[in-house]
Design a protein around this nucleic acid. Structure first.
Lengths: 143, 143
DNA sequence: GTGGAGCTTCCCATCATGGGAAGGTCAAGG
DNA sequence: CCTTGACCTTCCCATGATGGGAAGCTCCAC
């Protein structure tokens, strides 16, 4: 199997397969006389493992750890779980961070007329104008 | 004001201030005879604007758009709101993506003993082993 | 005048991926 | 046999936003 076929079979681009080899994530493949890389079912299986790990958001470094654990018959499931839970924490932290952004942005967007006038609480907020959260277009003291 | 003071006043690192200048996000600053950049309150204000936009997750490109709108007295709040809502959508998409990962990972982690045994449904899943979701360590038919 | 802090530019690294050029190879079909 | 097109190889560059660090200049205080 050439790299293109391995790519099709695994869903990993040929570019990435070469890259993974370069950084040592996968073993350098055997070559044919024409210097083409040769892949077998086992290699495709590894590539699919990597692809699945990546699709769950694991970094290549974490993926490498998981790959080694997978191939280590002496591993403990605790070691694997540790990698997973730590990744979950990281994802949750990032999710919370983005949710905070969304919350603020939605509030600002809600306060913004979205019309033809230039007055905009979103810009006021970005500009650090603390009087930005209330009514913005006019009527600072409507009473 | 030198770059270090502008950095302290704005919370943007000197490194980044130079970078923003290089990419045209901010105007090239005037220099003193010794070739030091000189900043005034207005520049610090711009830097703070950028920092705030970044903290809300806007890319530098979006930040540039917002900055131009801020400085354009003819802007419409609709234009600003458009940038914001589009960014909100992007954030929500990414949040949903990560939440999907978390959901899968939590399920797998829940199914994983996290003990001294090698058997691990997390690895089974990554390996594409479809029989991974059930009980894993033993007792496939405990009855 | 000396030391240290601060400024300048320039290059490199991150992380994962893609784009593209230049050149070798192979298979099919004229 | 030769061409054509698809495929492979390596090499370099780009992304986005940031930090690190080196080499060299300046400025201020002592």
């Amino acid at each position: 199997m050439n790299i293109g076929q391995a790519s099709d079979a695994s869903g990993v681009s040929a570019k990435m397969i070469r890259y993974y080899e370069e950084i040592g994530l996968i073993r350098p493949m055997g070559r044919t006389g024409n210097n083409y890389r040769v892949y077998g079912d086992e290699e495709v299986h590894v590539l699919r493992f990597i692809k699945r790990a990546r699709s769950l958001g694991f970094s290549l470094e974490e993926t490498e750890t998981l790959l080694k654990l997978w191939q280590d018959k002496e591993r403990t499931s605790a070691a694997v779980k540790e990698v997973a839970t730590s990744h979950i924490s990281d994802l949750e932290r990032r999710i919370a961070e983005m949710q905070g952004m969304v919350k603020t942005l939605k509030h600002l967007a809600h306060c913004c007329g979205g019309d033809n006038r230039p007055n905009c609480p979103i810009l006021d907020d970005l500009a650090g104008d603390s009087s930005a959260s209330g009514k913005s277009t006019k009527a600072k003291h409507h009473a």
